[in-house]
Amino acid sequence: MAEVALRNVTKRFDDVEAVRSISLDIPNNEFVVLVGPSGCGKSTTLRMVAGLEEVSAGDIYIGGELVNDLPPKDRDIAMVFQNYALYPHMTAFENMSFGLKLRKFSKEKIKKRVDSAARILDIVPLLDRKPKALSGGQRQRLAMGRAIVRDPKVFLFDESLSNLDAKLRVQMRTEIKRVHQMVKTTTVYVTHDQVEAMTLADRVVVMNNGAIEQIATPQELYHNPKTRFVAGFIGSPAMNFLRCRLEGNGTGRHVRLSDTIRLPVPASRAARYAALDSKELLLGLRPEHITEPRRSDRDQAREFAACTSTRKAARCSNPKYRELLRFRIAAKRRVRNP
């Protein structure tokens, strides 16, 4: 158990800057998820914390100790890899005990720890089997067991569930959360799956192009995204972006979408946007915020003619939505998500 701190950490591969001066503080026992599109530098960041990649600039601290030049084995971390990385010639028991044996633990202690971890993960009957005799989910559990058994300061997960089928992924997600609640340990989890990030994390770190876009709790991230990237990345179906103009009207304000459509800015925020009056802005509109029109808004509603109400919501991971609707506002003013 330890806190992890990154200070202006940069990673360069030749001329390419994969991670750009990121800073991050992870308190003890927190479950932090690094999320972002492919190539955003999240895995590289994790690998730098693990010691599998050298840091080009900046400092990494684990438990207050500078670990930049410390080899992985001396960082007291455990990592669960995307493709399990189990030792194929060893049984599940040997896989789990390998790290302990190298650290010269006594046989009794090794057995005790392995048994305890196996019980937590419900893999006790599988301990004599080799990885090839295990299913995908069992291998994933074993990989987690290998990490747990070491009782490390920090757990690192590198897209650990992306090889599993959808059903198993949901199941393992719950499992990981349960294990984290049982074995309180600082955890850094990398994924490109925002649902995974939102359901697992105490705090989510959204990364893009090697930089951190926002660090926040899942709720905060969803309701108060700091950048357009975060707004567009988090949420499924994604947020709609509409060009609009902010209009002041006495103390109240409106965002105007077309000649006939305007939406009121909540009074609590109206004053905050005063400086942006008459400016062209982007309005972010989450799909669930589009509802049936109230009586007073009927005139405007006509403008939002639902064109092709098609595309079944099969692509949409949120069961709340049954259909995807596409609206056209006046003169095709819809802006695509980034």
């Binding site: 971390i77 190298l102 290998r146 070491r150």
Partner: peptide, 18 residues
């Protein structure tokens, strides 16, 4: 041999010889 295997071994505390 997948490179994750040596990375896993490195994290488990193995030296290059081990």
């Amino acid at each position: 041999i997948p490179k994750e295997l040596d990375e896993a071994a490195l994290i488990d505390g193995a030296s290059h010889m081990q």
